[in-house]
C-alpha cells in the first residue's frame, strides 16, 4: 500500500469513526478512575473490573436463553449488561470495604482484584465452556448500535454520525461521551461533586465541615466500578461479541495514565483518551506500510511519560514562583 492511500485513509471521516470506536473502551474506565482518583482513593483495579464485567456480560447473555426461553433477544443483552455492571460495582465496593474498613493498602487491594479477575475469568470460562482461550462456542448477545436516522444520505455527515457502514455507533460509545458531560456537571456544578473533590484534596478539612469522607469514598469506588464495567461490556458485547482471556490487554492501565495525562479533569481526560485512540488507530493504518506496528504502539506510553514530566515540571515551577512571590511580599512587608 502506498503512502498516499494511507494518508487518504487517515484524513478521512471513516478514520474519525475508527478513533471513536477504539477510544470508547478507554474513555469509560478513565471516567471511573477519575471519580475515584478525585475522591482520594485511586482505583488500579479498572483493568480487572473491565475484564470481570466483560466476562459476566458474555456468560449471562449467552446462558440466559437457557434460563429464560422465549424472551426477546434484547432482553438477553440487557440482562448480560446488567449483570456485568453489578459485578463491576460489587468489585468497587469490595475494594472500598477492604481499604476503608480493614485498612488495606488501596494499591495492593487493586492489584489483588486484577489478579482475581485475570485468574477467575479463565478459571470460570474453562468450567463453564470447556475452553481456556475464548467463549467462541457460546452464542452471546451484542449491545445494540444506535443509528441516527435520515443522515446516511449526506456525504460526510452520514459517515461521521453513523460510522463507515452507516449502521451507527454502539450504544456504549454514546454513553461514553454522555458520561463525560454528566461527570463534568457533577464535579463542577453540583455540591456532591465539590464534596468529592474536597474529600480527595484535603480529607481532614472535608471531614471538619461535615462531609462524610468514608461514605464519599465508598461511593466513588462503586461509581468507578460502574464506569469500568461499561468499558468492559463494550469490549465483549459491542467491539467483539465474545470474551477472550485477557481481552482488556492493559486498557484499564492506560485509562489510569490517561487521567494524569488529562490533568485530572473530565474534558482533559477525554482528549487524552482520544489521543491514545488516535495512536492505536494510526498504528493499525500504518501497519500496512513498512512501519513496524510495535513502534507505533510505543508512542502512547512514551507520550504519557513525557506529559507527566511536563506536568510535574510546570507544577514545580509554579510552586517555586509562589514561594518567591511569598518571600518578596514578606520582605516588602518588613521594609514597610
Amino acid at each position: 500500500m502506498s503512502i498516499e492511500t494511507v494518508l487518504q485513509s487517515i484524513f478521512s471521516v471513516a478514520f474519525i469513526a475508527t478513533v471513536i470506536r477504539v477510544s470508547t473502551p478507554i474513555i469509560l474506565p478513565a471516567m471511573g478512575g477519575l471519580l475515584s482518583e478525585l475522591g482520594g482513593a485511586i482505583n488500579i483495579a479498572l483493568e480487572g473490573i473491565m475484564l470481570a464485567a466483560a466476562f459476566t456480560g458474555v456468560i449471562v447473555s449467552g446462558f440466559a436463553p437457557q434460563w429464560l426461553p422465549g424472551a426477546p433477544p434484547w432482553a438477553y443483552a440487557g440482562l448480560g449488561a446488567l449483570a456485568g455492571v453489578l459485578v463491576g460495582m460489587a468489585m468497587g465496593w469490595l475494594i472500598a470495604f477492604f481499604h476503608l474498613e480493614l485498612k488495606t493498602d488501596i494499591i495492593l487491594t487493586g492489584l489483588a482484584m486484577n489478579i482475581l479477575a485475570a485468574g477467575g475469568t479463565v478459571f470460570l470460562m474453562f468450567s463453564l465452556t470447556g475452553d481456556k482461550g475464548s467463549t467462541s462456542t457460546l452464542a452471546s448477545a451484542r449491545l445494540p448500535a444506535l443509528e441516527i436516522p435520515l443522515v446516511n444520505n449526506l456525504p460526510v455527515l452520514g459517515t461521521l454520525l453513523n460510522g463507515e457502514n452507516g449502521a451507527g455507533y454502539n450504544i456504549m460509545s454514546y454513553i461514553a461521551f454522555l458520561l463525560v458531560a454528566v461527570i463534568w456537571v457533577y464535579l463542577y456544578r453540583m455540591p456532591a461533586g465539590a464534596h468529592l473533590r474536597a474529600t480527595g484534596e484535603m480529607p481532614d478539612a472535608a471531614q471538619s465541615v461535615g462531609i462524610d469522607v468514608r461514605r464519599t469514598r465508598y461511593w466513588a469506588l462503586v461509581a468507578s466500578g460502574f464506569c469500568a464495567a461499561l468499558g468492559g461490556l463494550y469490549l465483549s458485547m459491542g467491539y467483539l461479541s465474545i470474551f477472550q482471556a485477557n481481552m482488556t490487554a492493559g486498557r484499564g492501565f492506560i485509562a489510569l495514565a490517561v487521567i494524569y495525562l488529562g490533568n485530572r479533569n473530565p474534558i482533559g481526560t477525554l482528549i487524552a483518551a482520544l489521543i491514545f485512540g488516535t495512536a492505536s488507530a494510526l498504528g493499525a493504518q500504518l501497519g500496512t506500510l513498512a512501519v513496524p506496528p510495535q513502534l507505533i504502539e510505543m508512542i502512547p506510553p512514551t507520550v504519557t511519560i513525557a506529559a507527566l514530566i511536563l506536568y510535574n515540571l510546570r507544577r514545580q515551577a509554579r510552586a517555586a514562583a509562589a514561594a518567591r512571590k511569598f518571600q518578596e511580599q514578606a520582605e516588602a512587608g518588613v521594609k514597610a
Partner: peptide, 25 residues
C-alpha cells in the same frame, strides 16, 4: 481444574495479608 485457581488463592492472600484490621476486628 485449571491452574488459574492459584491466581485466585494469590489474590485472597494479598487481600487478607494486607488487611491490618482483619484480626483485631
Amino acid at each position: 481444574v485449571t491452574r488459574e485457581v492459584v491466581l485466585i488463592i494469590q489474590a485472597i492472600i494479598i487481600l487478607l495479608i494486607t488487611a491490618e484490621q482483619l484480626f483485631p476486628r
